[in-house]
């Protein structure tokens, strides 16, 4: 009797583990794949000790080879450009921060995660995170926890949800700051427009 009870209790815990590989594949299959993906976003930050929610909005472009541009328009014009081995933060045209992988190897890890995250490359995320979640319903949702102790000191976990594209991202930083991003109006194309190009500059 007791054994059965224990088995029953363990069962729900076992399901996501067993489904792990399939889960990611299922979600990946449902995501739209195209050379160029663009869309708009609204970002809300909940900082430790701060009552107000800080809201920013803007648009993003993903180009499979060149990387991701995360262009905040309101309240500041600010860009975050993430390639596989470079992270650049820009205030208008002025570069605030530039990290390159050959000088700072950590960048490759962080950059890789951000790139995978924003470009919807879930298999890339699986390298660094343990994945749990549910992809049975109309919408899927995933919780990613860092595999690496070093990464866990930066990121507590990531929560992703969506349908044909990633629609919501919640980043719980280890420090307690929370960033929630909602993405909308996602469109795809085979090549970048002049506007997109300008974002990569």
């Amino acid at each position: 009797m007791l054994k059965k009870l224990l088995a029953l209790m363990l069962l729900p815990a076992l399901i996501p583990v067993m489904a792990h590989a399939d889960l990611l594949q299922d979600v990946q299959k449902r995501l739209v794949d195209a050379p160029v993906i663009r869309g708009e976003f609204v970002q809300e930050r909940q900082l430790v000790g701060v009552k107000k929610t800080l809201t920013a909005s803007g648009h993003f472009v993903v180009e499979k080879k060149r990387g991701v541009v995360w262009h905040t328009v309101k309240p500041f014009d600010q860009r975050l450009q993430v390639a596989r081995d470079e992270i650049v933060q820009k205030d208008g045209k002025e570069t605030l921060m530039k990290l390159t992988a050959d000088k700072e190897p950590v960048v490759r890890t962080v950059g890789g995660v951000l790139f995978s995250l924003f470009s919807g490359d879930l298999s890339g995320l699986a390298k660094h995170f343990d994945v749990k979640g549910d992809a049975r319903g109309a919408r899927w949702s995933l919780v990613l926890s860092p595999k690496d102790a070093g990464m866990a000191k930066l990121i507590g976990n990531l929560k992703l949800a969506g349908d044909k594209s990633i629609e919501q991202v919640e980043m719980n930083a280890a420090s307690g700051d929370v960033t929630r991003i909602r993405m909308s109006k996602v469109t795809t194309s085979t090549q970048m427009s002049a506007e997109d190009e300008a974002d990569f500059d």
């Binding site: 970002q43 930050r45 430790v48 920013a56 995360w70 905040t72 420090s175 700051d177 991003i181």
Partner: peptide, 13 residues
């Protein structure tokens, strides 16, 4: 404060 990522892992505060 509005930036998407903090690379230091420290809270903004």
């Amino acid at each position: 404060a509005y930036a998407t990522v903090s690379t230091s892992g420290l809270a903004w505060r």
